[in-house]
Design a protein around this nucleic acid. Sequence first.
DNA 1: CGAATTTGACCTGCGC
DNA 2: GCGCAGGTCAAATTCG
Length: 166
Amino acid sequence: MADTTAGSQDSPEAESDFELGDTSNFELSEYLLFDDLMEEDHSAFLASEFAQNPIHPGNEVDKPGSSSSQHERPASRNSESGQKKKEAKERVAFITKSEIEILDDGFKWRKYGKKMVKNSPNPRNYYRCSVDGCNVKKRVERDREDPKYVITTYEGIHNHESPSKF
DNA sequence: CGAATTTGACCTGCGC
DNA sequence: GCGCAGGTCAAATTCG
């Protein structure tokens, strides 16, 4: 699973019902239900489950009307001033059935924040690609009803090859 | 010693 | 206008 499309999106075939009412800022949102579980026995089962229920109701993974707020921090804090480049970031959410959220996908991630969300009793972890130049972010959060499931949301595309592997 | 991780504080955006 | 929620950064600490 290390290679799991590390670097590029695989065949997109999960988006459709996700209608973004406000596409002013967003242009693409693909949600791939992936289960890189080692026990294919369960993965197959889960796959069916997700097929019926993509995500539990009230999923905050993507709210079509909630407006996609792009957090553009003003240059106030940022050293770069006057440079606000809003690049359309690819957002891909993966649902993995695992007890650990430290899934090694072949990239080096540095945790830069943790936050408790109201929607889930579990904290949400924020990771960032440690590779310089790669501004890919990863959001890891446990399922609200099934702590065994981990929702990993990738934001951005890796502009480099995997540091490890190969 | 260096890099990575941790926790708290701070800021921004939206809703009411 | 204020409050809430979410997200990010920074400083301190720990592990390798």
